[in-house]
Amino acid sequence: MSKVEFSPDTLALAQRIIKRYPEGRQKSALLPLLHVAQAEFDGWLSPETMDYVASLLNIKPIEVYEVASFYTMYNLKPVGKCLIEVCQTGPCWLRGADDIVEHFEKKLGIKVGETTADGMFTLKTVECLGSCGTAPMLQCGADYYENLTTEKVDTLIEKLRASDNRSTYMKSNMQEL
């Protein structure tokens, strides 16, 4: 494995983020930097990536592990290129989220929590994403897909597969439905 290091551009971004906080409070940059790192290194945070972020902020590695494992958006294991996160909390459930999840399982041939054999999709159920008025919905990377129907899911799967981009929270990969 190659050495974990940000590209010069990303490093510059990281330095700008660190400057948002007062002297001596650079640890505040941890959450944003983990997002940046996850986007840079294949959509997940390996121990090496976390150690690297720790070195950028001059904090102990355990401080990074503690934080990364607390928040749900950080993947501590590799995920498929497109991480499909379907909301399943009350308001979405009331509008048929279960059907959407079931449809995904059928279409992709995987269960919730699994990744397709080609490494393209990981299916996950998540809790309320603040989109209950446009339920059912899912998030893939930075994008919200709302008012879902099984037909829309079919279209989405096709488009995502065709675009072959890795979804990241940092950048929109919006596929028109």
Binding site: S28, L31, H35, V67, F70, Y71
Partner: peptide, 23 residues
């Protein structure tokens, strides 16, 4: 400041902890 995915960070003191780069 972006959060990292945690409802509890809506509680104001948890939010401040999170903003300081902690759990």
């Amino acid at each position: 400041q972006p959060g990292g995915g945690a409802y509890i960070c809506g509680e104001e003191t948890a939010l401040l902890e999170s903003l300081e780069g902690k759990r």
